[in-house]
Simulated assay, not measured.
Amino acid sequence: MLKKVFGSAVFGVEATTVTVEVNVDTGIGYHLVGLPDNAIKESNYRIAAALQNNGYKIPGKKIIINMSPADLRKEGSAYDLTLAIGILAASKQIKAEDLDRYLIMGELSLDGNLQPIKGALPIAIKAREEGYKGFILPMQNAKEAAIVNDLEVYGVENIKEVINFFDKGEALQQVKIDTRKEFEKNLDFPE
């Protein structure tokens, strides 16, 4: 079964949406294409451990993952969560009807906890530009992304929260920032 999940690549201050197509079919193998760097190629080990430690698994089938646009270099471990959710949805381990409405990014620890990513602000700006409903990312980056208005930002601590959001409809806590209040709080007026 084919599923599409969306992430983003950041170059300088510009973000480009990356479509992650995950196809799970009969056979055996794990194939990752679309110019991924070594950190992304190693993601299957982090993903396998994170899923195992949270009651799920990488299916023993043929998995083909295409990161599109294929001619754009993808770097870093921030695609772990994107790939993991795609694998779970494509292998029918979770329901994920609204997957195409969210941009998902995050580095996975072996226990399923999320580590911060780089470029949350430009990714959030691009997500809003392209009409995504929300952006799911590590809690450590949520305030930075929440500066962008008209985009729901969800900071999560563990992959299990994202799985339960898509599979069981459990709500995620939306992070909201009052930029005016934050700005005024950080002003230092001389007396």
Rank of each mutant, 00 (worst) to 15 (best):
I64Y: 04
E182A: 12
E144N: 04
F165D: 03
I94D: 00
F189T: 09
I58C: 04
A120P: 05
G60P: 14
E144M: 02
L151W: 03
S109T: 12
Y102N: 10
E152M: 07
Y56Q: 05
K3L: 05
R73Q: 14
A9I: 01
N53R: 13
K176G: 00
K3P: 00
G29D: 11
N66V: 02
P122C: 10
V156G: 01
G131P: 14
K3W: 01
K74C: 09
K3E: 09
R128G: 14
K143Y: 07
P116K: 10
K41Y: 06
Q52W: 02
F189H: 08
T19I: 14
I64T: 15
E157C: 02
R46M: 11
P116L: 06
L137C: 04
V13S: 15
T19G: 00
V148D: 01
T19E: 15
E182V: 08
Y102R: 11
A90D: 03
K185L: 14
I163E: 02
K41I: 08
I85S: 01
T16G: 03
K176S: 01
Y45C: 05
A9Q: 13
Y102P: 08
A145P: 03
T19H: 02
E191C: 12
E191R: 13
A49L: 13
T179W: 15
N44Q: 13
I104C: 08
R128P: 14
L187M: 12
A124V: 04
Y79N: 14
F6R: 14
K57T: 04
E182P: 07
G12C: 06
R180D: 12
Q173Y: 06
I58A: 05
N149D: 13
E170H: 09
F165E: 02
R46N: 08
E170M: 10
G86P: 01
A70K: 06
D37R: 04
Q115D: 02
L35F: 13
E97C: 03
Q52E: 03
E152K: 15
M67K: 05
G169R: 14
S8I: 01
M1H: 10
L110I: 09
A145H: 07
K143W: 07
F189Y: 12
P36G: 08
L35Q: 11
I63M: 03
L108H: 13
G27V: 09
E144C: 04
K160I: 07
